[in-house]
Write a protein that binds this DNA or RNA. Structure first.
Lengths: 154, 154
DNA sequence: CTTAGTGCAAACCGTTTGCAAATGC
DNA sequence: GCATTTGCAAACGGTTTGCACTAAG
């Protein structure tokens, strides 16, 4: 997996640049994080890291996620229930989310037009955009189907 | 202010419909809420209500805001710092926000095209959208100007 | 040997809940 | 009278912080 090595380097570079230390815990957390696909909460990541190395604390996971955000490897997104999810971001192009409020499923979408319109709007208000969060809440296909099945069953 | 009376009626109707009781506290909170323009946090609203009627608790403000959401008078939105803001929503058309991460300013925007594109995307994924949250974070015109002034001052 | 990182427990902050007393209907 | 609402205090859940200890450079 050449990508993983590259991302690991990005992290080590970041540590060096900011004169931080490379530790076993940070390496373990990065390693596990890069092995997850999709979205993880901090607790999930903690549990996964724990499974491999029980000597890692909650705190360190949080602190490391912050570092990963800083060096652009992790992207933070707010789920529908208020807790924070993370996904890796490095060379994983920008996208927004459809969020199923029944099962919590996250569907990624990307629209060139919407991105363009956002730029346009920001310009109108002389607003300098840094980033955005665009979430559409509703029911995913699966949950709609189940809903329908439940309705006809009674 | 004919609008306010109308909204008050909506609330009282909602109470009747759901067999809830009309109380002095609920009336006070509604009254103060309708008098605010723009966005209030629950604590701000609590403070404002407190100023008029010191015998109202935190809890009641939260619980009443929930009722106001239910009957469509209040809309909830997440600020950039994780706390919840409320705005009144009744006959106040839908919009999204540009959020200044420096001063917290909220600028409302609305784009027919973006709304349309969202529908389109949902359709593509057979997703049934209920509502959405679209926030663009960045620096407002004022903060950019101040930033520039600070930079040239040194 | 100096500086930063760690794990733990405690603090935090906005929000929610359990409860006995108070109030609307 | 009966159910609902209230305010308080305590609980909650996710995140952050203070601190004595440990480890990296």
């Amino acid at each position: 997996m050449p990508k993983k090595r590259e991302e690991t380097e990005v992290f080590h570079e970041h540590l060096k640049r900011t004169r931080l230390k490379r530790t076993a815990q940070r390496d373990a957390i990065l390693d596990v994080f890069l092995d997850t696909e999709g979205h993880v909460s901090s607790e999930e990541l903690y549990a996964l890291v724990r499974a491999k190395d029980p000597a890692v604390g909650f705190t360190t996971v949080y602190r490391t996620l912050k570092l990963l955000k800083e060096c652009g490897l992790a992207r933070e997104l707010e789920s529908y229930d208020g807790r924070t999810l993370y996904e890796h971001h490095y060379k994983h192009s920008h996208h927004d989310h459809l969020i199923c409020t029944q099962c919590g499923a996250l569907i990624e979408f990307y629209s060139e037009e919407i991105e363009r319109m956002q730029e346009e709007i920001a310009r109108q208000y002389r607003f300098k955009p840094f980033h955005h969060s665009h979430r559409i809440f509703g029911a995913c296909a699966k949950c709609q189907k189940e809903e329908k099945a439940r309705a006809s069953a009674q």
